[in-house]
Design a protein around this nucleic acid. Sequence first.
DNA 1: AGTACGTTGTCGGG
DNA 2: CCCGACAACGTACT
Length: 636
Amino acid sequence: MVVVVVVASLALFALLAFGPFSIFYSNPLVTCRQAEQVPQLHFLASRRHRFPATKKGEESCLGDRPLEKDSNAITRGGNYFQSMSMASSSFSGSGNALMWFRKGLRIHDNPALECASRGVTGGGFLYPVFVIDPHYMEPDPRASSPGSSRAGLNRIRFLLESLKDLDLSLRKLGSRLLVMKGEPGEVLINCLKQWKVEKLCFEYDTDPYYQQLDMRVKDYASAARIEVFSPVSHTLFNPADIIQKNGGRPPVSYQSFLKLAGEPSWASSPLMTIFPSLPSVGDVGSSQIVEVPTLEELGYVDIEMELPPFRGGESEGLKRLREAISNEKWVATFEKPKGDPSAFLRPATTTLSPYLKFGCVSSRYFYQCIQDVYTRNKKHTSPPVSLLGQLLWRDFFYTVAFGTPNFDQMRGNKICKQIPWNDNDELLTAWREAKTGYPWIDAIMTQLHKWGWMHHLARHCVACFLTRGDLFVHWEKGRDVFERLLIDSDWAINSGNWMWLSCSSFFYQYNRIYSPISFGKKYDPNGNYIRHFLPILKDMPKEYIYEPWTAPLSVQTKAKCIIGKDYPKPMVSHDSASKDCKQKLAAAYELNKKLNGVVSEEDLKVLQRKLDATCDSVLNPVHSHSSSGAKRQRRS
DNA sequence: AGTACGTTGTCGGG
DNA sequence: CCCGACAACGTACT
């Protein structure tokens, strides 16, 4: 199941993680004609699938090539049944195949499903399985907001909706989704045994959680002589290929990644398939099969939460993709940094990131759709800022993460600067709970709670504020909050972006700090975004809405919002806090340089003590936001 | 050793 | 809207 092992979307993190993808919501300007201008669908049956050349149960440990390069293997209008019978000649036994869904919750461009369908032989059956891990899905009463210990309610809902949609699509093809509960590895191995499965298919996954889980399952399959097919289809490229091309080390800059990556092998091959039907599902024996559960059935009762503007599933994802793509001028001129992070009625990006995260939409199909628009619009933007560039960022982070041990933490991570971040839970909690006293920051964090999604640049602002800009809290802490709450949170992209924003890796210009006051103001001078997500401030005059503590008491009274009572005072003064942060970063960089990146725990402690003495730090405000905030206010 | 470059800073001035 | 100052990092390449 989709348990991500380490709690990690910066969207920018999500970039995608920090949500890189955007789409308009319903765009009334999209016509049917435009919507159809996407690459043609092709029949699955037409393609002769080649099974991996490696031995049974061993292939795919590093992931197979996503698709054969040989486009001759792909012809239109082939005969489904013919190809099935071809496959059957090479098998004997039960002829049963199992398709294990984890991410990749889609029918289109799904090589593992194709292979599973083709792998059914004789009178065999196809078992499409999804395993719900209770740790990932069931309520944790101790969590800081509704949801499980690992996932916020918004992502759990999105996943359930995606499963429901997948089940519906499978049923239309004469199959269904077999939902089971339990520890995924255990459940799956049990299925393989009980159902006499001879072929196991699932999408290859680079996340450490799956690396470990899949190893276990593959070991069992190998011992039981079950054939395993595990294609790379979540990303554009196989991260292992890129790392190999670079002499075994992942590229650490986007530009070098681009050079190594080049064009994907399948760039002009048809990826879309239509299944006329799927092999039927066999007897499930004593296995406990459930319908896709509702939130209530999982134990989420009496929770009042407004619905975020994202419905999960392949159907909705493809609809949004077509809407986004149909606006060709928008696609061709897309420049990520020019988007407006305060736009919420109509976000400035595709908002496809949640769909890419769960694989409801294929990133490869998205890639081809964009290229298709580019062929008709010769003048278009380029990576890193273009729409295509956003997809490549996603692959960039997947590649670096896959090739970097301990990528999701500072310690033991070779590409991560060792910095003496503080471990102050009070600062972290105020940030997480949208109580920093900076309306721009608190509005963004509120959007995170309510929607499970914010614009990429909004993610930048709050990540910078928590780490190198103001609070100097460890980036891993903020990453964990994003990881749980973002619908699109993604292990590689989220940690990558947090390192980026905290100047721990990839980006190092620590003097460039987002102002929690001016940055939002330049996009949204009236503060509409703040008024929407922080209704307590809705009547604050625009002159004060970004800095309500500067409003005269009479104005606060009239706006029915007394600062310090109805809305918090700023927890730190940005001017002095950011100066302290810069000083600390400079000292930490110096130490890293001196020790050539090999900084011990003790070295960091010594530096921290030294910095605490020299900086008027925000690290010890134990008794209060207001008093330390007030103190700082006086100094400035 | 030196140079160019790097998806998305802020502020003040023209 | 664009400019430079601010203060100055690392990576990649020559």
